[in-house]
Design a protein around this nucleic acid. Structure first.
Lengths: 165, 165
DNA sequence: CAGAATTACTTGCAAAGTACAAGTGAAAGG
DNA sequence: CCTTTCACTTGTACTTTGCAAGTAATTCTG
């Protein structure tokens, strides 16, 4: 249910409605950071390598929250930190993200670990279940190793496109 | 093959790459118009009810073409008309669009025919196959009846059988 | 406990992108 | 021919974004 906050809804088409909520350069990237990278804080999003401006990030977080896709809570051990987390509604975006991964892996040469993508494609249900499990148990370990992270560098090799910053 | 035209690619993440190509309010709506509504011409996109400005539409069509997601050809019977059509790459966005439909149907109250969505969700493969068939045969009848259209799609029957993936 | 650091923002401003109205040129119809 | 249709382009106002800098609340450090 819901959908109260949107300002400029123009047609009743589901795709249109969805794009009203996250049809921009940043919203889905934030969801990805939360879902597959295990990021939780403003700073992590900011430093995730995409180069989102802090004012825009703040705005997006506000909107995602208003739309019920994420929640915020103060971290117990450190009152400065806010932890953003996906709601059920946000987690349900997993299949969308999954299909985006699959499409991109097929049509653009990405540095993404193809084996992981293949596995995801083969049993999406298990993947979704895993995302849910992490959410319940507050497990923040990345679902997919980041290209560039030391841990699984077997995959980072193929990443050779132009990189800004 | 792959993305050559993109100007501001910032990270190698597949989601990021994909959002570079259609992470905006309009691109995916154009793909939807082509895929599920059977639209082919500039004018149809313009009048599809979302209110895209003509200069922006022109720009998006140019970009989708540059990225290899659509092609253009002059209509034989009328030299004024250009027909835009999805390429394989464009058609492969069907699962993304499908999951967007599913997500929206679940979380926002949309006016969309839930039965159709349910059917799509149950056997995505058949849906994708149907989209491909339409493309091959240049069948432009809408895949999903537009909310508000009285008539049902001629082919919605083919989305009935169950099949898991 | 004072000062430095960290976190999550906000503010101001220039640049880029978008919306709206109007116009252009080529092809088709009457 | 002259008008209409189609696929855009152009000009201008408005909105959003990107960037640098600043602020308030905590927390760390000596």
């Amino acid at each position: 249910m819901s959908g109260k906050a949107s300002s400029t809804r123009r047609s009743g088409c589901p795709v249109s409605i969805a794009l009203d909520l996250f049809g921009d350069r940043w919203s889905l990237l934030i969801v990805r950071d939360l879902m597959v990278r295990g990021y939780r804080t403003f700073k992590e999003f900011q430093q995730s390598g995409e180069g989102i401006a802090s004012n825009v990030l703040a705005g997006r977080l506000r909107r995602l929250q208003a739309e019920g896709m994420i929640t915020v809570e103060v971290e117990e051990s450190d009152g400065r930190r806010l932890n953003y987390r996906l709601t059920e509604k946000g987690i349900d975006l997993a299949p969308v993200l999954l299909e985006l991964y699959v499409w991109t892996a097929r049509h653009e040469n990405t540095g993404a670990p193809c084996a992981v993508i293949e596995a995801m494609r083969r049993n999406p249900r298990e993947l979704i279940a895993e995302v849910r499990r992490r959410w319940r148990e507050r497990d923040s370990t990345p679902l997919i190793p980041r290209p560039g992270d030391g841990a699984r560098s077997a995959n980072s090799r193929s990443l050779r496109k132009e990189r800004k910053r």
